[in-house]
């Protein structure tokens, strides 16, 4: 074990001890998504307003008359977290400008699951990012509609069995490749886009802190393990998050003003079976099918490497959000 790894191991003690999402929330045992939320909140600190989409995280944290939230929080509906966040940002901006509230930076953070980000919420997200609100949007992607009963979304990976893409006698689960939303956000010209996973807590926390500093829109796509929906043992949550990165299925990278950088380097990609084996949702796949998925993983990983290597194509031009304010 080298020094860097040791540092990563001991550094958790340096993380903010304060919890902004309290114990007593009703997430399932071993929920990776609520861990993502907890770590995100630690990175954000107290000066935020969270706009949460309908979904697991909303349900488990806000059973009236109780709340697990230490920070101001609003939920309106499923598809509109980014639009509600836009409004919160606009409201705070106007009230500050007009001297109606204290003149202090308060970051607006939109939070949604894969359905609320990649499917039904994509339009509102696209609008909010295009308009350049000073807002961080975090997608907690557990690759299906878990709250409603494990239905497939556009975030569900090829071959995964869900309740609406079940493996059957003539079907092998999800028939489509996962939608690449981080890339869609890059195409919006969002000045900070990153992928993250709570299994790499410091990487995730650093990315949230970086996004916080951006004046304008930023986006983090956080991969979160769902033991209930994936039929994986609850204690494997962190391990699976590591495996998804080590197999190259979900590489951890960031895109700053169009410049790609891998934040967690993997020397030698592990075979994807290592990641798939502990999960019930992949149990039906044949070796041939796994091979097809493996080829695609290599292809996507190489595409990403090309983007990273193509750095020279980018100038140092910074996006200036709010130029015409």
């Amino acid at each position: 074990m080298n020094i860097i790894e040791n540092f990563d191991l001991y550094a958790p003690r340096l993380v903010d001890k304060k919890e902004y999402l309290c114990s007593g929330h009703r997430a399932c045992q071993g929920c990776g998504e609520v861990l993502g939320l907890r770590l995100m909140c630690k990175a954000l600190g107290p000066d935020v307003v969270i706009a949460n989409a309908t979904g697991c995280m909303e349900i488990i944290s806000s059973m009236y008359p109780s709340t697990a939230w230490e920070v101001p929080w609003i939920h309106v509906a499923f598809e509109n977290a980014a639009a509600v966040g836009s409004g919160v940002e606009a409201g705070l901006k106007a009230l500050r400008r007009k001297g109606k509230i204290a003149d202090r930076d308060v970051k607006v953070v939109g939070v949604a699951g894969d359905g609320g980000t990649m499917d039904i919420g994509l339009q509102a997200l696209s609008g909010a990012m295009e308009r350049g609100h000073d807002m961080l949007f975090v997608c907690l992607d557990n690759e299906a509609y878990m709250n409603t009963g494990i239905q497939r979304s556009s975030g569900t990976p090829m071959g995964a069995s869900t309740t609406t893409s079940p493996a059957g006698k003539v079907s092998s689960g999800q028939k489509t490749w996962k939608k690449n939303v981080p890339e869609i956000m890059v195409a919006h010209g969002v000045s900070y886009v990153a992928t993250a996973c709570p299994s790499y807590p410091l990487d995730f926390i650093n990315k949230v802190k970086k996004a916080m500093k951006v004046k304008g829109p930023s986006y983090i796509h956080c991969f979160t393990v769902c033991p209930t929906g994936w039929r994986s043992p609850s204690e494997m949550t962190i391990k699976l998050g590591r495996l998804v990165v080590e197999t190259g299925i979900f590489p951890l990278y960031e895109v700053e003003d169009g410049k790609y950088r891998m934040t967690v380097e993997v020397d030698q990609l592990r075979p994807i079976e290592d990641y798939m084996k502990p999960q019930g949702r992949y149990r039906h796949l044949t070796p041939d099918q796994i091979e097809i998925i493996q080829d695609r993983v290599y292809q996507e990983y190489n595409k990403l490497q090309d983007k990273i290597n193509g750095l020279h194509a980018w100038s140092d031009l910074q996006y200036e959000w709010g130029l015409f304010d």
Partner: peptide, 8 residues
């Protein structure tokens, strides 16, 4: 709705 939530 979000803006109204801030008191605006």
């Amino acid at each position: 709705a979000g803006a109204s939530g801030t008191g605006a």
